[in-house]
Write a protein that binds this DNA or RNA. Sequence first.
DNA 1: TAGGATCCACTGGTGGATCCGT
DNA 2: ACGGATCCACCAGTGGATCCTA
Lengths: 232, 232
Amino acid sequence: MSRSPLVTVDPPAPPRDLAELSARAQALVGRSVDELERRRSGRDAPGPSRERKGKVGQLVEQLLGASAGSRPEPDFVGLGIELKTLPLDAAGRPKESTFLCSFSLGDAERADWASSGLRRKLAHVLFVPIVHAAGERTIGEPLFWRPSSAQEQILRADFDDLVGLIALGQVEAVTARLGRWLQIRPKAAHGRVRTHAFGLDGELISTIPRGFYLRARVTHALLRDPHTLLDG
Amino acid sequence: MSRSPLVTVDPPAPPRDLAELSARAQALVGRSVDELERRRSGRDAPGPSRERKGKVGQLVEQLLGASAGSRPEPDFVGLGIELKTLPLDAAGRPKESTFLCSFSLGDAERADWASSGLRRKLAHVLFVPIVHAAGERTIGEPLFWRPSSAQEQILRADFDDLVGLIALGQVEAVTARLGRWLQIRPKAAHGRVRTHAFGLDGELISTIPRGFYLRARVTHALLRDPHTLLDG
DNA sequence: TAGGATCCACTGGTGGATCCGT
DNA sequence: ACGGATCCACCAGTGGATCCTA
């Protein structure tokens, strides 16, 4: 193994069970993200914050032994667990909604909750808070979450409403205000990428790519009470 | 009658019926507020906008023959009609919520919708839009509004919820976010004036004076459809 | 391009504060 | 003090735009 001023660390093997994954996540609590990053890369360069987008997620994936890469599958394949980092402010509130998956508008007609990738992703989630405070990022207490059946009803209702709207050709009526827990918002590598859907009269409509997101107020509530319903 | 460079106009007698009031309001449509103001006062001085607060309301009251003054009663006594000017932006959207009446927190225990002054005020309202566009204020198309029974249910429910909260001593829980159509917000001549109420444990609580307001989105919807329910 | 996320200009609403006239 | 209203600083959420790695 090559040596550099900062020792690099090999990614661990995939965790064999939930207990092992949990133990690894616990071991990260309180650690500095910048320091972990330096150790992984062997380099010393935090860089401006907007050039760090997405890196935290991949760092934590590696540290926990997720099957890295862009597979259509759970981060921890054998366990069926999806990993999500969650940026929190100093007061413990999520700073952003959580991206779940992209959604091709053309798929709306075929989509149904029971067989959706979204449902599979949300079936079992490991949230790892990234606490932004005093100019530093620290890893927080992890949360394993499985939606209760009452919670899943909310998710499914949102999913049906949103997908239904699009299937009916009301693409332009889809706003981020819709959905109690879920929302559909833009998600694009470049603002000019277009995807397609069919409008009210069956005409082809070109829109920007979108994705499903979990509202920040929902993740906030989940951190405090994993069984929350937030209102009903 | 004295002459001045700008002719002043005598306030008309109170309108005898709704038709007469309606005709007067119609006659103002499209007129410039500044010009009407100059004609009334005989002076030529619009002044900075923040020194004009409240004047529009009184100007229109005079022009329509309202029984001016701070009576606890409808602006048009015989007709039981309340006059409200409504500031609109260039797109026709209300710029502000509409002040309805002040509310002494101490009255909460006694208050009930059926006998409330608020209900009487809202029973029949003449809305006179003041359109703010291109640096000018113009009088818009008037709207006579009587709440439908479905609308009154919404108003009463809001009233009961808000007054109920206060009666229970939850004064500090009253936020402008509560209420579908109505809201309770601060209303004070000076920020330091205090009124009093009783807290959860019966202790005396000192709070700033508040009043009932009608949400801007409600007046907006009413202008487009006087029977709107806005959702249910 | 897909998965991992964060940035940011804008806007609508909140929570008061303020102003006029009687 | 009360009835007539408007002003404004701030904040949360929206609607995209942008960035990284594989």
